[in-house]
Design a protein around this nucleic acid. Sequence first.
RNA 1: UGGGGUAUAGCCAAACGGUAAGGCAACGGACUCUGACUCCGUCAUCUCUUGGUUCAAAUCCAGGUACCCCAGCCA
Length: 555
Amino acid sequence: MTTETTAPSNFLRTIIEDDLKSAACKTIVTRFPPEPNGYLHIGHAKSICLNFGLARDYGGRCHLRFDDTNPAKEELEYIESIKESVRWLGFDWGEHLYYASDYFEQLYQWAEHLIQQGKAYVEDLSAEEIRGHRGTLTEPGKESPWRNRSVEENLALFRSMKAGEFPDGAKVLRAKIDMASPNLNLRDPVLYRIIHAPHPHVGDAWKIYPMYDFAHGQSDAIEGITHSICTLEFESHKPLYNWFLDNLPVPARPRQFEFARLNLTYTVMSKRKLHELVTQNIVSGWDDPRLPTLMGLARRGYTPESIRAFCDRIGVGRSDSWIDMSILEECVRDDLNERAPRALAVLRPLRVVIDNYPEQQVEQFEAANHPQNPEMGSRKVSFSRELYIEQDDFMEMPSKGFFRMTPGAEVRLRYTYIVRCTGVVKDDNGSVIEVHCQYDPDSRGGSAADGRKIKGTIHWVSAGHAVETEVRLFDRLFNDPNPDRGGADYKQFLNPLSMETLRNCKLEPSLIGSDHEIRYQFERQGYFRPDPKDSTPSNPVFNRIVTLKDNWSKK
RNA sequence: UGGGGUAUAGCCAAACGGUAAGGCAACGGACUCUGACUCCGUCAUCUCUUGGUUCAAAUCCAGGUACCCCAGCCA
């Protein structure tokens, strides 16, 4: 199994270590706070691994808290799916499952407290008017005419809002901070809005809902979060986060820290774009194996271990960065190389006839399930006169350096015999459709009796024993490293070959009927697993998770 | 243009005034019945830039440059 090395030092670890040392906090408490308005993707995995990983490494705990303050966008299905993905990734929130919506009553009380203190007011201006009053990056905003209502009037109005006496959008509650602040988030931010919609977690108990800014820090305080870790774009919200903690009788003083979100090449991560790919049927669904969603990666065959290793490997920083997709791919290879049993499978079959091999004869050969790990055992593979090899493993006119099967030359058929190609059969177009060979009976097991070295070894499957299956070859969804790049439509960079379906692949029979969770290495090709949705014993379908590294074709 | 951030190798990333870790990639070699794996070796006289302070600067100071974020009743 993969050994997970401890993540290297980063600025958050330094901060936590200092806090622990100075006894600024005795145990650290972090949280992963998704909004249940979509499915999790690899970017969320970075945050999950960070938050849960920090808690684990420093003997603290990590809460799973749904940031469910906007019922217009949130659904129960997402809540369930998110929990499943976090579990799948290998993290356990134990008893610490929370919902911001569970704090709505407390939050409401705190909103009244602010009103009492003259620090919040009910706004009658429309959304457009509020925007108009906000000013710009360089000009200060204008104060609302409703900014100086009396405490009594504000309280009465706010209670009416809560009672559902106004339609959506009629009024909002705003904090009274500073309309001239250079930080636009401090220009009297909206605290509550009216939404007449059922909430996935608390039903229709509420007609007004707090904004993110009014909910997040206070939720952190209620739960005793010590380190509230979010992405960089929230940095300009930090003064507001702290303003609420300063002005409300909260039970604790959490601190917010920001890190750079994950960007991955050759894919897109925004909810909007992922949603578009799904709804426009560009991909088959949220679990399409080409998507960077955790559901997609899981279906493709990525292991949770490999994703955790990836998150450790990429580190955590504060500068915008783009991680190359090849790093993620390398992480699954690392993991699967150690644990995946090997098998022989021919994806694009080319018929081979060994002319000097007895016609009805079948021999069994012992094939190791893992070349470096004998504990994984072995299996028998059947060898006969007619076989399939990979089309790519034969070249009638070999290019320089090619050492697989070619007329006149010897090559080893993995685990069995050395053969020499003696001729080919072609169709009307001149394509080779069958290859004829002679085998060396003295090379049984694969080694020549006279000790001569054979450079090439290729995989094969006995024609009479092969099981025909469908194999789906997945590749990167986009051709461009940065399809998200400003301006152009990202869809123009879609890779037309991102999924190739091969229908008459020839697999060794041991591959059939096994557990869907087993990932195999098809020798010399890559890592594969049965598609958990579409594969059945009678109609097996394999997904290619990732190819093997290939230093030959690269040159 | 106001405010807030960020710049260390092809891609990430450490360093906390003491002389540029590590990973991935790349390259060279060894091994090999998987052109995989594994193993060895190479890969920043230099940290966006210009000055300054210091015995000593990626780290401190001043000025510049580039990029990112903020004008939702989204999170």
